[in-house]
Design a protein around this nucleic acid. Structure first.
Lengths: 146, 146
DNA sequence: CAGTTGTTTTGAGTAATTCAAAACAACTCC
DNA sequence: GGAGTTGTTTTGAATTACTCAAAACAACTG
């Protein structure tokens, strides 16, 4: 499901970010890529398949390094542990289910990033606008209706 | 700084919410009202002045009850513990300082609440849009410039 | 003012994450 | 291609913010 080239790409991106290329980093990158929004535990269980023996602490280290490097994005919705996703650089937003905490992406609401600018910002120099929508996901709507 | 009437109002609002009127609840309400965005520890230290011996656990209980009742609003910005404010019901937003975590209010950006509606919401039935701006507060701008 | 029910306290427990030091592996340079 | 340096991973412990549970207590009801 993932090619030789994928791994080379990942290695190149790590190097470009000034990070050493290591097995745990490749494994984490692969675990998160295209798999939605994962917390550290979920990343660990995916990583463990490819690289048994990896510690949770390493997963935290790697997730932190990759996030700082801009290769992953971290979101922290209320009531959830930190979640990581591979879609970076486009300032998209999120919908979170108030019942089961499922998360989905939402494209930028008002044109280009940063999407929104407050009129009065209390003297803050703003660089990011983060939008979180809250609602019921399709599954939970169904369960509550049924 | 707070009148007899303030306390009566607070008691009335508690009763209206179906909650018993107790000293810790009045003290917490008073501690949070008009004092920005406080975490549980900060609430405790303010409460302790008026009501020594109050436990942190009680502060958590009270903050939870008051939030559920809609008398307080809870926000949970990334990297900060939960913060409580007395301004409820107007769906205003927040700016958070990326350096010192100071928080300020921002009025609703695009007209009336809920302010925003995503075009595609991945099947979610959305009821709230939460906006968090990130930037440098005035103090931190000054310190970095100086 | 006695009873009931909800609240507060005390004390312990948990989840998610961070800190620190030692073992180890990737890249650099010869 | 092997030694050295530096960054990474592991192991183990600690911390923060918060929740759970049971007993002591206080607010409202009649």
């Amino acid at each position: 499901m993932h090619t030789e080239t994928d791994r080379d790409d990942a290695a190149a991106r790590l190097r470009a970010a000034g990070l050493k290329v290591t097995a745990p980093r490749l494994a984490v990158l692969d675990a998160v890529s295209g798999h939605g929004h994962l917390d550290a535990e979920a990343v660990l269980s995916r990583v463990t398949v490819a690289l048994p023996g990896t510690s949770l602490q390493s997963v935290y280290n790697v997730l932190g390094a990759l996030t700082d490097a801009g290769l992953l994005r971290r979101i922290e919705p209320a009531e959830s542990p930190a979640l990581y996703e591979s879609r970076t650089g486009d300032n998209h937003h999120h919908v979170v289910c108030t019942r089961c905490h499922a998360v989905a992406d939402v494209d930028c609401v008002v044109g280009e990033p940063p999407c929104l600018a407050p009129s009065d910002a209390a003297g803050f120099a703003i660089h990011t606008a983060e939008v979180t929508f809250w609602g019921l996901c399709a599954d939970c709507q169904r369960e509550l209706a049924g």
